[in-house]
Amino acid sequence: MTDAIPGLFNYWVAIGLFVCGLVMILDSRNMIRKMVGLNMFQSAVFLLFITMGKVENGHAPILADGISRFSNPLPHVLILTAIVVGVATTAVGLALVVRIRRAYGTVDEDEIFDRPEVEPEIVP
């Protein structure tokens, strides 16, 4: 049990970030802040993956003479992909925010939803 605290500390911090990110996503009015929360939320999962890839006294997984102990490259590959996917989502989300600002003049979700709903005339 004495090992548990340093051994699991990484996970706990990742979980803390996960919760912070989730709160920011669930309770932000500002759409840009929501995207920042989403980034934090995703990075918590990245941290969890990279943590499980670490091997005690291991080295970066680049083969070289005289090194025989490496950290696990597979989580690195997966997270490399996930980071790129994350920024792709951010880009699309922010493009939507730009269009929403142009259509509604604000990026505050509550402000948009408080407006009376008008049914726009759809002209075929």
Binding site: L38, F41, V85, T89, L96
Partner: peptide
């Protein structure tokens, strides 16, 4: 936008 946020949470 709302689908994107929910979908990204789901994917994560």
């Amino acid at each position: 936008y709302r689908y994107l946020v929910m979908g990204a949470v789901g994917a994560t």
